[in-house]
């Protein structure tokens, strides 16, 4: 089984369902923990952040009543989704993730080498996604309690690159604009356009650049321990060859370094499982769903995949010569 091909197929299918699902009367609701932007007209499933931020913009006492229940319900549904698929939302479903992966394929096709952040840089910016997550909770609360101007409404949605970008796939260009209403809206919506630009340009240098700073990833990482998908490592079997780290689009060093920890769904992991396929040591890495193991590192399978030339994104299959 070639997991990367399967993953691409699932990503494409998810993209179609989430963006065009409305055309086939599919409705997965607006509580999905992934950037299936709710601004896409007639979508098949929507991101929970927009509703979540609006629900938070209320005076505090209201949360004791009906508002609180509504909020908890929304959060509960998003959390349930997050438990079922945890980080697989990012590796297998998210439209923004898919677009970045496709751009990476284009880069590889153009023979452009990837680069990585230095270990220090990477470490330093790890907290950005949590800060964004905290802000997208605190700012709406501030608005609801009269501390912050309404111009900051649903601040993350204003900043999110998915909002200008994804509606384009339905021919809707209205979101692809800067809102000159006030300074905050200008900053935020301008930022969104810049992020879209960054996504396209950085994809020719790095993999999954935006994901490292994504507050959705921060939200999903809260479920790393209890999510049904898990990535296990047996440190005794690992030679620390670094193959997994090299393959990891999120540049997660623990996957190579860790010798004792068993659960390797780390805060940045998107469960793409490229590491498992890149690992040549029997049973060193293993992916499970609800305790059922569906992919194990295996020397022979690894070599067979390498020979077929379909290991990662870029090594196209070539006709076999004797």
């Amino acid at each position: 089984m070639n997991i990367q091909r399967l993953r691409l197929a699932v990503q494409l299918l998810s993209f179609t369902v989430l963006i065009y699902g409305g055309l086939f009367a599919i409705d997965l609701g607006n509580r999905l923990p992934t950037f299936a932007c709710s601004y896409v007209p007639d979508h098949g499933g929507g991101c929970f952040l927009v509703g979540f931020q609006h629900m938070l913009s209320r005076p505090l006492p209201e949360f004791l009543g009906e508002q609180g229940i509504r909020l908890l319900k929304a959060l509960g549904i998003a959390s349930l989704w997050a438990i079922v698929l945890n980080k697989a939302w990012c590796g297998w479903v998210c439209p923004i993730g898919l677009l970045q992966d496709l751009l990476t394929k284009l880069r590889v096709w153009l023979s452009i080498d990837m680069s990585r952040f230095s270990w220090m840089t990477r470490h330093r910016y790890k907290s950005v996604k949590y800060i964004l997550l905290a802000l997208l909770v605190l700012i709406p609360l501030g608005i609801g309690n009269g501390l912050i101007s309404r111009d900051w409404t649903a601040p993350y949605c204003q900043l999110c690159p998915a909002r200008p970008l994804l509606p384009l796939f339905r021919g809707d260009t209205t979101q692809f604009a800067i809102n000159f209403l006030s300074i905050p809206t200008m900053l935020l919506t301008g930022g969104a356009i810049i992020l879209v630009g960054l996504m396209f340009t950085t994809s020719f240098v790095k993999r999954r650049f935006l994901c490292s700073y994504c507050p959705m990833l921060a939200f999903l990482s809260l479920f790393d321990k209890i999510g049904l998908f898990s990535l296990k490592k047996d440190g005794d079997k690992c030679t620390r060859c670094g193959n997994c780290y090299r393959a990891c689009p999120m540049e997660i060093r623990e996957i190579e370094e860790e010798k004792t920890l068993k659960n390797l769904v780390t805060q940045d992991c998107i469960l793409c499982l490229r590491c498992v396929e890149a690992c040549p040591e029997n049973m060193a890495l293993e992916a499970q769903f609800a305790g059922f193991s569906f992919l194990k590192a295996d020397a022979e399978a690894f070599l067979a995949r390498q020979d077929a030339g379909a290991a990662g994104t870029g090594t196209r299959r070539r006709r076999k010569k004797k």
Binding site: V108, S111, I112, D113, M114, T239, R240, C241, G242, N243, R246, A247, R274, A278, C279, P280, A299, F302, L303, Q306, G309, A311, G312, T313, G314, T315, R316
Partner: peptide, 25 residues
Amino acid sequence: SDMVSVDEGTMGDMLMAIAERYVLP
């Protein structure tokens, strides 16, 4: 026993994979 893992298959990727295979594990 240690193996090169070609990932993206660009020149830089392959050279890095080769370099690391001989030293890291």
